[in-house]
């Protein structure tokens, strides 16, 4: 029911385009649209925790603005001087705020992406590029956490004979850490010899590797992709014609939005809100399907 039910390619295109658009468009209305929609989606995915994190990110944006404005002094509207005699300008404050908000929008977008894009999806997408590469990533996902597990086992094992890094005086603690570390390394290498013979034994070195896919591209994905492309083409057109950006230096120049602008805002909001709407609709439909019985 969530956006993660869509094909990984859709997930990737969506999140990449949101991040690229957020970073490129510096028109205040575009920035606000992206911020509002992504905050809403973040709350949808993370619940109460999302609200808390979302609001604490605002503080981050404000702090960033303050720092930015006290180090950058471009612009013509001088609001005052700081204690070392540099100008504090309206333009630098506004621009700092625009960067800060875009930054936290990207953070929330990444937060959403981590919820939606699972390890399986990463492996799949890389498998489309190269099966060997995706296998390499899958091996990393397996072997990196195992190092941690092993070092924990070693520490517990050594605790039982009084040789843990938390036992004895400082000198012996240091000695124990060194021994444990070398043991983790040795053990990891030793285990990997086994793993590599298991790989060889199952034909790892043969040419023409393929990649298993858990996913299939269905009509719903197609529809989503078409709508998404429609919005994206519109927006990149708008970008090329300079609708999505304004001037901050030396003076804030923002043309009064006309009819085309309104349509473009809607298109941008439309692109961003697609997963959220899709989730809300399918949840509604699911509840409805339960009503029948």
């Amino acid at each position: 029911m969530r956006f993660d039910a869509y094909h990984p390619i859709i997930n990737f295109i969506y999140f990449i385009s949101v991040i690229v658009c957020t970073l490129t468009f510096d028109h205040p209305i575009y920035i606000s649209v992206a911020y509002v929609v992504m905050f809403a989606y973040y709350i949808k995915l993370r619940g109460v925790k999302g609200i808390k994190i979302g609001f604490s990110l605002i503080a981050f944006a404000i702090v960033y603005t303050v720092i930015y404005a006290s180090y950058n002094h471009f612009g013509v509207t001088i609001l005052g001087q700081n204690n070392i005699g540099n100008n504090i300008t309206l333009e630098s404050i506004v621009y700092g705020l625009s960067v800060g908000i875009r930054a936290i929008t990207v953070m929330m977008t990444l937060g959403c992406a981590f919820q939606i894009i699972t390890k399986d999806k990463v492996v799949y997408v890389f498998g489309r590029i190269s099966p060997k590469l995706s296998l390499f990533i899958a091996i990393l996902f397996r072997s990196v956490p195992r190092v941690g597990v092993r070092s924990k086992a070693i520490d517990i094992g050594r605790k039982g004979i009084g040789k843990s890094f938390s036992q004895g005086n400082i000198l012996s603690r240091i000695r124990n850490v060194i021994s444990s570390t070398s043991s983790v390394v040795g053990w990891t290498i030793e285990d990997f010899i086994d793993t590599s013979s298991s790989m060889k034994s199952r034909g790892y070195s043969l040419r023409g590797r393929t990649a298993y896919s858990l996913y299939s591209f269905d009509n719903r994905d197609r529809l989503f992709l078409i709508v998404m492309i429609f919005f994206m083409v519109t927006l990149w057109g708008a970008w090329a014609l300079d609708y999505t950006n304004i001037y901050y230096d030396p003076k804030i120049i923002m043309p009064k939005p006309g009819g085309v602008d309104v349509w473009l805002f809607v298109a941008y909001a439309g692109l961003l809100i697609m997963p959220l709407l899709s989730e809300i609709f399918s949840e509604k439909r699911f509840r409805h399907s339960l009503d029948i019985y």
Partner: peptide, 28 residues
Amino acid sequence: MQNPDNQIVTDKVWHELAFGLESLGTPQ
């Protein structure tokens, strides 16, 4: 082999099941 853990190459059950077939270049 003897050690259940060391023979497993990938992080997911589905991927491990498919590993050998992937090596053989089996179509999807």
